[in-house]
Design a protein around this nucleic acid. Sequence first.
DNA 1: ATCGAATGTAACAAGGACAGTTGCTTCCGG
DNA 2: CCGGAAGCAACTGTCCTTGTTACATTCGAT
Lengths: 141, 141
Amino acid sequence: MAANSRLTIAAHALAWLELARRRGREVLTSDEVAASVNTNAVIVRRSLGDLQRAGLVTARRGNGAGFSLGRPAGEITLLDVWLAVSPEPLLALHSSEPNLQCPVGRGIRPVLTDLYDEATEAFRAALARSTVTGVLERILE
Amino acid sequence: MAANSRLTIAAHALAWLELARRRGREVLTSDEVAASVNTNAVIVRRSLGDLQRAGLVTARRGNGAGFSLGRPAGEITLLDVWLAVSPEPLLALHSSEPNLQCPVGRGIRPVLTDLYDEATEAFRAALARSTVTGVLERILE
DNA sequence: ATCGAATGTAACAAGGACAGTTGCTTCCGG
DNA sequence: CCGGAAGCAACTGTCCTTGTTACATTCGAT
């Protein structure tokens, strides 16, 4: 499958929001974000909608509206972003139940679930080590 | 997205091959593996074809043919299996190039590539800690 | 009170990934 | 040379993702 680029879009938007804030612009429209990410404004609104539901950004409607960070960029980790935009698990079990007559079919699912959870946890822990501030500083270096 | 279940199918097949081997059957047909996984024999052949290309199983054709393990089950890690069946990266960058006029658009890609590599490496390291033998023993407990 | 700018959201199309299925070809032991 | 099994190509149906258009909703400014 074409792997998810949702984390990329969301992280890009947040870094851009933080840079704009440092430059004195607290609020950006979805059009302005879309211009930097180079995609459609609706895509941005969908993505930032996820982030808003997680409290990572706030959206104001009406005239002069737009998006701003929901909390300091140094307190938003990539894991927060990942959890906000990516509900799907990294690894899936069988799409149809295995044969329970077979010892392997009977016992494999809890074992794999366990191992998949460990791998997913390691993945998440790595994402938790970066913040939006960290990403932006590395960009600006 | 419906997450990949390819690792699940391949790990299941390998565990079943190893259990059969312990019971004195060195070779299983794709039909026999498919019966345990509860899927189509072609799906199994496709999956075991990937494993064969990676040297994890061997396939014999002709009458009385089938699949057997390519090396000891204790020397096959889930990472080996993952690498054999899943060429796609876990995380993707932008599907279309970001706006290079913007400082964020210009600098974000190497930063994210780096962070994604770290998270992917953590994920892989976790998979590398389990072997087919380990999976099977936990199933049989 | 109205206007306009922006979010929110639904509907849709194109493209790709995946599981599953059928049918045919190739291989090779007996 | 026969038959069983892998290999493989083509096709279907389903789902996800990106992108697009269109419209309803919200709300500050005038």
